[in-house]
Simulated assay, not measured.
Amino acid sequence: MARSQPIARSPDWSVLPPELLQMVARKLPDISDFVKFRAVCTTWRSSACVSDPPPQLPWFLETAGYFNRKNLRFYSLLSGKIHTIPSPNSSGNWLRGPAHDYIILYDTTRCQISLFNPLTGRKVFLPFLDIAWLWHKETVKPVWVGPDPIESGEPVVLLGYSLDFRTGILALYQPVAREWVVIEEPCLCSLRCCYFNGMCYVHEEVTGDTRVIDTVIRKVVHVIPPPPEGDYECNALRGATYLVQSGGDILLVVLHCYDFCNVYLEMADWHFHIHRLDLRSGNGKKPRWVKISSIGDQILFLDEDNGFSLSCRDFGEFRGNSIYFIIRRYDQSLSFLCRYDIEEARAEPLYCPSEKGGTWIVPSLR
């Protein structure tokens, strides 16, 4: 009688060393892969802690149609996949970004602002902000919503207008004290603003000046004139302007278009001019903008109003010195997702799951 062949056994993946599992988990820059990794078994789940996830690439979040929204749609640049997540908390509310981990959610029925994790559904209610203008959703923009503001203690910064549109108001939520700090300045009547290390940088679209506000003493400490006219000149029909914190630098990023109304036809004529803010003064020198030709290993992610920066060192599949941006036609009819290679000075269209607009969020399970 012939001997029976031994039955091949599947390897027991649960016995892999924890340090090896942790190394593999740290190499998963798309959170959907991180979730699948954790679902393999108990050992893998304990080796991939949601409180210490690998660096994540932003997802494009569709924000249009908030009144009847039952699901949220995300698009992953890394996988090229669309993810749909049920989100009853977002129905009838508006969402604002860009953001890390938590996006700004405004409950239109209760006049309540929250930090909202669209992946987990976790909602953190912020104290009531008793300023009437804040409830006009079109006039409120996030300036800074950093990584895990609940645990990090970093402020959440919003920018808006007064009801008469003559004065701008900067509102900083302090997570430790659980209270708002409000700064009112005429120079804040702008949608181009960024925050870094207690300083708020506000770009005045009319004059081109940039004002630096110390949020501790609540005063303007610098007024920086615009770059030379040939490097900066821009108007609503021919481009867009952004202020972005990138690797510790404050950047003035200006998109020049031949014809903004025909944004999808003239992409070959698009160019970004980038300036770094040099705040060093002395020897007769004043703070100024310095034009640069590279942002190194940084990648900028811009929506229609604001943006943030990440390092490509955490994402081997993506090149640095580039800009991913969402732009809307001047007539507000269509939005486009594009990538700009700074070294080659070349823009290219990317697949966009929504023509009605969206923003960026760094996904998180926290």
Rank of each mutant, 00 (worst) to 15 (best):
R366W: 09
S152Q: 08
P98G: 05
F301R: 06
V263S: 13
E355P: 05
F165S: 15
C200E: 01
N235R: 14
S322Y: 02
V181C: 12
F37A: 04
D249M: 12
A347Y: 07
R276V: 11
L337G: 03
V362I: 09
S246H: 00
H83V: 04
T139K: 14
F318T: 10
G153Y: 08
D314T: 11
P349R: 11
P58K: 11
Y66V: 04
G247F: 07
S354W: 02
V140M: 04
E205C: 10
Y161D: 06
E343P: 08
E317T: 11
L158H: 01
K123N: 09
V156N: 00
V35A: 11
L105P: 01
I82F: 11
L279V: 06
V143R: 00
R313M: 14
K36N: 09
P142H: 08
C193S: 11
L78C: 07
Y201S: 01
S246E: 00
F60P: 00
I327Y: 05
P18Y: 05
A2L: 08
R122Q: 13
W144H: 13
P227Q: 03
F336V: 07
W270T: 10
S79R: 02
V362C: 07
P175C: 04
Y258T: 09
S91L: 00
P363F: 08
Y324P: 01
A2M: 06
P127I: 10
C193Q: 05
T63M: 02
E204F: 04
A236G: 15
R122I: 13
K36D: 08
S309C: 09
T167W: 11
C257E: 12
Y351I: 04
K286E: 10
F301Y: 06
Q56L: 09
